[in-house]
Design a protein around this nucleic acid. Structure first.
Lengths: 325, 325
DNA sequence: CCGAGGTCTGACAACGTTGTCAGATACTCG
DNA sequence: CGAGTATCTGACAACGTTGTCAGACCTCGG
């Protein structure tokens, strides 16, 4: 900037005014400065500018578990759109479900003075963020609640959705319903399991612990568990899978042995209607989840100081497969 | 920092030393400073620190077309891993295939003084980056070549892959092969089309312009085009689709009318083996593409000043479906 | 006992930019 | 014609941090 000023024969302040489109600069000087800028290839240093002016960095941080996962990719896409609407850049960080890494990354994002944080929490304790939030870095949690911190939260209606799904199965006469899940250490899984149990209890169906299987982390395991359950003396007549990875494996196994057991899954997925038989699912709009959270964050960034909000994004039962049996 | 220094009864420089784990500070002072840091909730301002020290910002920029797209999400995930290995944050920006927006975003990333750029180009002209690259912000292009700029480039072997795919079809005796593509305005589509034509010419199969259909942007259109082609007097016996969105729609239509035409597609996709019939595809490892580019970028950031490299990532024919016919 | 070298600390300037303010000139209005 | 206002410019300090350097103290070997 000093070089540009020298070249244009003006002060650095005038250069600053020109590159910021400030008023009250002679057209002739503007031209000289712009010429010097072009000749020297000058680029304003955005970091230095926010340092002095104390203004926002026009950057927000998004912390998710894993970018490549389609669910988080959809979230990232929707957040990026909202950010772009606010001329804001997006730093995306992956916690890989590791609470220590999550804390490290969030601190690092704060050190970079992001204007706000969107967090899909991995850990259970976010009290370390309290100071940052008080100091003016707003945070909005999505998909999972914050631990030990009053903050804006946008969640899916996991429990209500699972309840509606299992209700559909019991309404169709099923009583032996297997529930397949990833891990109860994940909030969403606990909520969905609770919703399934709500509906089983309502219907007076036995909540048989042998029919609830957790630790299913990939389609292959799901297929194996489905096989085991079907090979039992008194096999389930229906399966309720708590995420789409599990649904995928379950479909494969049911199709392989041409079973007539019913499958209903939480989470929609792209190819659901192309599967060997169409799958009924509990669907939701991931983009709405993300956009809601992002818009809430930008309201905070613009200065909204109201009490933290809790938003619940609805789920919907999408009936595709005819109930078999 | 000034406040921390006052509270700990030391100079700001000593505080700086402590928060940077610099040697030669008395343990007692370290303790006092850390206590003051904790009490005041001090967080080092990473922006100011890079400003003065002139060191790297530990941030790289990734420019892609659309985050939510699984292809780009996979790229982003792989890049994020490499970045994490280098303790570097990742800013992801979406050009939405708009060259003007691309230029704007790349300039903005440079203004933020990222240490390097990974670019999946949308535009045809990247000469505006030449200055930045000379000034020390390295850029690596991936999946598509840069326009008018000598820079590191990592590409898929699109042409070779398409050639291998169509060779397989002609080897199976097909002569009327329809080629379905998105748009010839996209580099990868042009390359794949060229590869397909290579193989058709080799086999002496007519490169019938009526059998090449472009402008297919979504599965529904793909299904419609397949239907049209099959309803012609002399329908194709095989389809070669140049991306997986098109494959999806084509499969659906072929399955719907239980056609015995063969389909072979460029791009693998998750549910390929769950489709009504398994699909043979030209596959490649997107993560290798992205990791290669990211690692090349970090080599540049570490100071490698060799001549720009061009890397070609191989494709592979994954035979899943038996040739129908 | 001296000098060399290691350990430890702080004053000061600087990174690239912008806010503040004072000053200069021109224009307007009573 | 003088006062007030609008337009225009630059000197200077400041944002939060770190590089540089000088200086203080200590230890150790000769």
């Amino acid at each position: 900037m000093v070089d540009v000023a020298a070249r244009a024969g003006v002060s650095v302040k005038t250069v600053s005014r020109v590159v910021n489109n400030a008023p009250y600069v002679q057209p002739e000087l503007v031209e000289r400065v712009l010429a010097a800028v072009a000749e020297l290839g000058f680029r304003r240093n955005h970091l230095a500018s926010t340092l002095r002016s104390g203004q926002a960095t026009a950057t927000i941080g998004l912390l998710i578990e894993e970018i490549a996962n389609p669910f988080y990719a959809t979230i990232a896409g929707a957040v990026a759109e909202v950010a772009a609407d606010h001329d804001t850049m997006l730093i995306i960080a992956s916690s890989e479900e590791d609470p220590a890494r999550e804390q490290q990354l969030l601190r690092d994002l704060c050190a970079r003075r992001v204007d706000g944080l969107l967090v899909v929490p991995a850990g259970e304790d976010h009290t370390f963020l309290a100071g940052e939030v008080e100091l003016g870095t707003p945070a909005v949690f999505l998909d999972r609640p914050a631990g030990g911190l009053r903050a804006d939260t946008v969640l899916l209606d996991n429990r209500g959705g699972a309840r509606a799904g299992v209700r559909r199965l019991t309404a169709d006469g099923h009583r032996r319903i297997a529930v397949l899940l990833d891990s109860t250490s994940v909030y969403t899984m606990r909520e969905r399991l609770a919703g399934a149990r709500d509906a089983l209890t309502e219907a007076g169906a036995a909540d048989d612990p042998l029919l609830v299987r957790d630790g299913i982390r990939d389609p292959a395991t799901a297929a194996r568990v489905v096989a085991e359950l079907l090979d039992q003396p008194d096999p389930p007549t229906a399966f309720f899978s708590l995420n789409n990875r599990i649904s995928l494996g379950a479909v494969e196994e049911l199709h392989r042995r041409d079973s007539d057991a019913t499958l209903l899954g939480f989470d929609d997925f792209d190819s659901a209607r192309l599967l060997p038989y169409p799958l009924t699912v509990i669907a939701y709009d991931t983009r709405t989840l993300a956009r809601t959270a992002a818009e809430l964050l930008f309201r905070r960034i613009r200065g909204d100081r109201d009490a933290p909000r809790d938003v619940l994004v609805p789920t919907e039962l999408v009936a595709r497969g005819l109930p078999r049996r």
